[in-house]
Amino acid sequence: MSAAITVDGLGVSFGARTALEDVTFAVPAGAFVGVLGPNGAGKTTLLRALLGDVAHSGRLDVERPVAYVPQLSHTQDAFPIDALGVVLMGTYPRLGWWRRPSRTDREGARALLDRVGLADRARTPFDELSGGQRQRVLLARALAQQGRVMLLDEPLSGADARSRELVLDVIAEQCRRGGTVLMTTHDLAEAARVCDRMLVLNRALVAEGSTEDIFTEDVLRRAYGGDVLVLDGRPALIDDPHHHDRSPERLPWSG
């Protein structure tokens, strides 16, 4: 299968701080890849580099267009917009400067809201939706971008169970259709359950491969340092205090 993403010797620095260095990997088309690593490991920076959003060294080859689901915290709550309006924003790059979304675009956007389980919320103001619902609206917006490659930044954090399942369903469908998905996450258990492949980062690429290759004590220790416990011969990640509020599920292999 041909590679949808090829990264060769990628390096990103912000001033004197090195965010990523010498990262090399390739992702085949149709794969669902989990991007793991501790806080500050460069997960979001990797996505931004793939978007062409930050200055970098090395070679990047990404199948375009690229759709993107950013972390929730970036949207302006003061901005009055409903769910349908947010999804329609995904069509803007295709429309060009002066054209407005057409009736077909609107129908398409409604269908995408239906796909993420929010058909009845099209006219609900974005700031009145729950965290999980907002995340699904942003996912629908990314689908409206019709990208061959989709990048998702922590789409499962703060999401309720129904939102998580819906997000993962949509991703699986996207991959079945030949789309390629990269998702950053703190949730090792979820990633192990749903992703085909993993990338483990800690400013550099610690490991890359299938779930079995990645979930070894050695790899996790190199990425997460002393935060890894070995229980009954299985590695487990000790909860990161910064993410207590995000996900209750932490010890994936302790049973």
């Binding site: 993107y68 970036h74 901005f79």
Partner: peptide
């Protein structure tokens, strides 16, 4: 105005 990082990501 609504989502600056997204606008940047869209090119």
């Amino acid at each position: 105005s609504f989502d600056r990082p997204m606008a940047q990501a869209m090119g």
